[in-house]
Design a protein around this nucleic acid. Structure first.
Lengths: 136, 136
DNA sequence: TCGAACTTGCAACGGGGTTGCAGAATATTT
DNA sequence: AAATATTCTGCAACCCCGTTGCAAGTTCGA
């Protein structure tokens, strides 16, 4: 639990119960979470707006990143290497079409894609949909 | 212009001016379009709801597909091989961070990714962000 | 412990997207 | 060509997502 305060401190954020709760929710559930998931997890403890702002702050500080999906926006913890200045931008996300969970596959690299001339890629985002090991 | 009617007919859709206009907008502009883009392109000709429903219908029939993006949903024409039953599901989209345009790179294949045991992938969606040839 | 700086809750708002329904347009049958 | 069944459209209303402004409450450093 002091781990949480530590993380916030590193990113120059004041420790508030909302931020601690949101952060620990991300740590406990390992998968990507939507704003609605957090509202559900935290009950009536905090205003919707506060949760939105917490997510926005965490995004800006590089604590979490956006996860794209064909039916909405989610967020997931960034790997340790992320910070406000420098982001690990290449992500592979796996969304299970059975249980609906989305997870980051942190250890995989996106294979090189050879683009036509003139394209200058900066970051890659791969969403794979299918069946996850749990639902197999 | 009869091409449009033909396409609609193939998909068992009635020819209406809205559908023809939406379809031809997709054909003329080659990039991915949002609902807002279409509203802008078609002016006051049609109700927002009608455009939403047209997009939904085209999606269901396999005429267009969703394009994911970190700031919203867009749609693009499917390649010819798509139909209501069978979709060409693997897509590479390139979004230019300068001009904002998103385009399908139809001819490229996503290289194989070796997933951990237990994962059964069904489709792949790769979003590459960077600078496009026009803005180079 | 005090004050400056930041965070929260509330209210309100705008945009995106959906639904129900009545009226209009399209296709089909004769 | 006219009548009918079917499908589409426009309108109104609604819900959900996300944002903003402001006043009151917290945090943290001096």
């Amino acid at each position: 639990m002091d781990q949480l305060r530590e993380t916030l401190k590193v990113h120059h954020l004041r420790t508030t119960t909302c931020r601690e709760d949101v952060l620990s929710t991300f740590i406990n559930r390992k998968n990507a979470l939507s704003h609605g998931d957090l509202e559900g997890a935290l009950g009536e403890s905090y205003d919707r707006v506060t949760i939105y702002r917490t997510l926005k702050t965490f995004l800006e500080k590089g604590i979490i990143h956006k996860v794209l999906d064909d039916e909405g926006l989610r967020y997931a913890l960034c790997s340790h290497s992320c910070s406000e200045e420098k982001h690990q931008h290449d992500h592979i996300h796996f969304k299970c079409s059975s249980c609906g969970e989305t997870n980051c596959l942190e250890n995989l690299h996106i294979p090189a894609v050879s683009l036509p001339d003139g394209y200058h890629p900066e970051n890659f985002n791969l969403l794979i949909q299918g069946i996850c090991p749990k639902c197999n």
